[in-house]
Design a protein around this nucleic acid. Sequence first.
DNA 1: CTTGATTACCGACCGACCGTCGGTATGTAA
DNA 2: TTACATACCGACGGTCGGTCGGTAATCAAG
Lengths: 231, 231
Amino acid sequence: MTAKRSRMSAKDRKTVILDVATGLIATHPWEDVTVAQIHEAAGISKGGFYHHFTSKEDVLTAVLMRLADASTAAGQAVYERSEGGPVARFTTFLAATARWELAHADQIMGVIRIALREGNEPILLKLEQEAQRRATPLMRTLVRAGVEQGVFDVVDVEMTVDLLQRAWRLRWVVLAEARQRCAAGDLSGGRALLEQRLQLEERMTSRLLGCTNTPVRMPDPEEFADFLCSA
Amino acid sequence: MTAKRSRMSAKDRKTVILDVATGLIATHPWEDVTVAQIHEAAGISKGGFYHHFTSKEDVLTAVLMRLADASTAAGQAVYERSEGGPVARFTTFLAATARWELAHADQIMGVIRIALREGNEPILLKLEQEAQRRATPLMRTLVRAGVEQGVFDVVDVEMTVDLLQRAWRLRWVVLAEARQRCAAGDLSGGRALLEQRLQLEERMTSRLLGCTNTPVRMPDPEEFADFLCSA
DNA sequence: CTTGATTACCGACCGACCGTCGGTATGTAA
DNA sequence: TTACATACCGACGGTCGGTCGGTAATCAAG
């Protein structure tokens, strides 16, 4: 029997439901999560749940959109007000993206925990596709600008952007491992792992872009120092 | 009421079950396929079905393994008996892979149809991961051989192999579209699409491998002529 | 040829789960 | 005060995956 009814606004109640659903997904594969678990954790009845969401799948979609929001970089705003040539703007874009990601590291680590949980591969796929769908237009713009100014020599803009995102996709997994090493006392090992990863991504990015003069630079490893030392 | 019992060997019955399951997956998302549909299409009872498979998920795993088998190239055997330097062996590997794939085009088209059906994203992900898991060791060997002989200049062997597979992954989708154009009467358009795709992959492959002297060559478009003109 | 063992197969049944629907309770505007 | 809108309730129905006690078919041993 649910407690005496407690009425909330629709918006607040949806937020509560999505919060508990996200928590459940972090500890169980989505297929094993039941509507009963979600509505009980949210403190409402099943009918109350179905008043806000049309189906279990509807909840998953909403959770994914929220998670994708968390992983979307703030690069667009930075790009629009950045200066310099395409290489400088690309480097600025990468630095801004990294700063935004570090500012939201808890959310991103939460997303990674969910997405990499065994049984959540469908969620991982959808998240990567959504993140890629959002990032691709700006990245194509940046790459085309570089091609037009003759500082990038790419084989194909679309394929290059796709491969760039693929090359960068494991960064936060490596960051998580680097932080674990630091937490275990191996500070130099953790920092080395991070530096190696950024160097690797930087060289692969320059290779894919075919930088003819100055290479595109990945963010300074010092930007990640606080993250490595946290929790 | 099922017809009078017809007894088959376990092996044959499993094959029938997997055949009908694969057919169902090609026309419905896996989630919508029921055990009832599978055992009815196989002409046995539910208990008969569970005698051969421990669960619905067990069937999916078996179907995926069969599909992965279909998409594994015969490159290993060809590599082991190929001659010449690393560039020649890599080119031979690519040509042999393409020939094997063309010889099994129906199976591959069937796999693509299944994997790209909306709702089958989890299957697509698993298939890609399994195909990649199988192809990676040989590809790494080929790339390392080239690095050691100084004809490849790669940023990182593991990341390069990963990106190569990513660069190649849409080839059969493009092939399917090229064939559709030919079937619709646009022969030159279909051939042009194929040639563009192979050129793009060839240039990206050379970029990723950092070919210092001769480039790695993709298979000759003429090898695909029969496929383009078939049904 | 009979018997016992093995195994392919059957279908009634059960429990878990998703989603519905007729209802109540709460809040707000007229 | 009343009517309306809407957040919420929980009993219920239907579907599905899987189980289990059984039968039928096949084969090997005596």
